[in-house]
Design a protein around this nucleic acid. Structure first.
Lengths: 211, 211, 211, 211
DNA sequence: CATGAATGAGCATTCATTCAT
DNA sequence: TATGAATGAATGCTCATTCAT
């Protein structure tokens, strides 16, 4: 029993045969491009290079396959290691994190996972929740922990570090993410990102830097 | 001559018979709940209390109906009159605006239009653009104009008022909008909104208040 | 009772209000262009410049309207007065008739009635029969009567004048009608028609001229 | 690799699985009875004993299926081997050919393909052309070649053998094909055919027999 | 009588899913 | 296990027909 046979939603210890991976790769490409409804099982099969029948050997149905994709995305993005060394310089840390974060969020064809999950959240709330909790909230939590450390270190004066973390992340998105996700602007250039992140950092430190 | 027979796509001066309104209401409910692909013309007909055929008397096809819904949302949200009297107190103005803005964005079942449009933006870029330009960018522009006035008045010191406006709006969303749109949290309470908006205002003024 | 109210299929003495004529004209244009299935009642209404509802005031349904069109075509084509003066020169009469006949049959957009009726004959046999009997057979009969007169006059020696008439008409179609109706060639030029009709006449007289 | 998965429109070397044949048989029955517009994919599926979905596994759409039917008819009728041995007696050859030709054209339920293709020729001209060129024109060409041989042999005196061939074929149709295709008469009996073909042959030889 | 808004049955087509091999 | 042929329910859309005005 160490092969497929429906691992269902077990968050950890997913079966990972080559076929399964192949399917997930194809499915990700299709779902992220076309969305849940827009992508068909046929296209996924073609993209994955397997037969349609095989899809159903590894996943009970389209929903399960989609959930697995999101899960994978969650795992992967959750792994995004930002440098939150608590002893590191605050300004540098914030700028580097902000840049990496926006680059991740706005990479060409990469708002896709955010968009795709947002899109389905009304119909598949658990999927939206998992994505939020394990990607967005996780990152907020990590940044919050870093901020807490800087508070302790005496650099910053913050009441609610979680809120502050969220504020910083949203500030970094200002003028970049919304146009990008609404297709009103292409992916931002490194220069644009730098400018916005610098401004966000300045604002953040102006508000929270220990006076 | 105030009746159906294809009013076409005229953006302004749309025919507004009762039937048309009825259909738009049904369609909005369905599209916002299920998304563009998820909602079927049959369901819309049922929701609107008309026959499927009637849908096509008023709208050429599913796309046109969807676009009309978005257009309506655009018109409605674009009309949102925030009090941007340039002589008004800065802090009060920001707090009131922030509160109204988040209430609009996160009203129960109201992130839906944002979500629904984001979801379709990859496949219908013009729709995404219209929504961004006439709702999001419009509001940013209005706030930016107000900020400009306060700069002139000597209250604030801001280089890029448009960026600043965007920053304030994003800051107000912190910890509220993302959980809401990912269905990880219900619509925020007035108290939650007040707290976040206050914090955003504090941060904003700390950064941009003339020293 | 001297107005509409469904005159049904009465072959003679059809009601003929202006509206009715208007409808028939629109319907003819549409049916002959698009065929019975291809033409819609909506298009007919537009072509006739009346409302769809009005169509049903004058004709019970699409079938009845179509039948009326064919009937009208039958009446009109039946009236085609070829010069069959029994005392007229045989060769000249044949050539003139042949030319007029092919011109009628192959006039641009005019094989249409033949095509349209043939097309529906399997599903509406009575319509096909009426058309054949009152257009094709009628013309054969008239030519046959003329031939009979020439036999009596001593010009021709024919056993079965009806068959002979049919033979002459078919011979005139040779190389012209089939390509035309299969859309493998455009409507024939007067020169082409003349050549074919001349050849047919030569052949006919070679076979039936009193030796 | 002898199975579906879209054999596309390859005119020759068509895949020929049993299912495909089954579908073609059902489709032929339906299309020939009801015409292109009159026959629905649902009826075809029922007639073929397969599901509607299966139709689309073998044919991209209704048009393709219809074209395949016509193509099959073209192939089949094009194969009709008439005995055109150039050394064979002229009168016998003509009579035998004429009889076989009319029998083919007027076989019960067999004028149908001619009718069905004529009917659609206005909207699908390539289909009409293929049918004309590969069925009608082909046969004319073969007969013309035979006539040419008889001219060379000194039996016949013909200027335009192609026109003469067409004339003979049309003459053979006299009083038989038109009533048949308009459903004004059932398929002709062998006796009727013999009589008409004999008369056509007599006429033809009277005109073209070397004097 | 004439209108045109409204209907609902019907159509071509797609696609998630099943299952014999 | 992997396949791909087959399915049938569902979808977007059209159109002949009805009926209140």
């Amino acid at each position: 029993m160490s092969h497929p046979q429906h691992a269902a939603l077990s968050i950890v210890g997913e079966e990972d045969s080559a076929k399964r991976r192949q399917i997930l790769d194809g499915a990700r490409a299709v779902f992220m491009d076309l969305g849940f409804d827009g992508g068909s099982m046929g296209e996924i099969a073609r993209a994955a290079g397997v037969s349609k029948g095989t899809l159903y050997v590894y996943f009970t149905d389209k929903n399960a396959l989609f959930e697995a994709i999101v899960e994978q995305e969650v795992l992967e993005q959750g792994k995004s290691a930002f440098n939150f060394d608590p002893t590191r310089d605050t300004e540098i840390t914030l700028k580097e994190f902000g840049t990496a974060y926006i680059q991740l969020l706005c990479r060409p064809g990469g708002g896709s996972s955010t968009r795709t999950v947002m899109a389905i959240a009304e119909r598949m709330p658990e999927v939206g929740q998992r994505f939020y909790n394990n990607v967005v909230a996780l990152t907020i939590g990590r940044l919050a922990a870093y901020l807490e450390a800087r508070v302790t270190a005496g650099d910053l004066a913050i009441d609610d570090c979680s809120l502050a973390a969220s504020q910083f992340m949203m500030c970094c998105q200002a003028s970049l993410f919304m146009p990008f996700i609404f297709q009103a602007a292409p992916a931002p250039s490194p220069e644009q990102i730098a400018e916005v992140v610098n401004s966000a950092t300045r604002m953040f430190l102006a508000a929270y830097w220990r006076r």
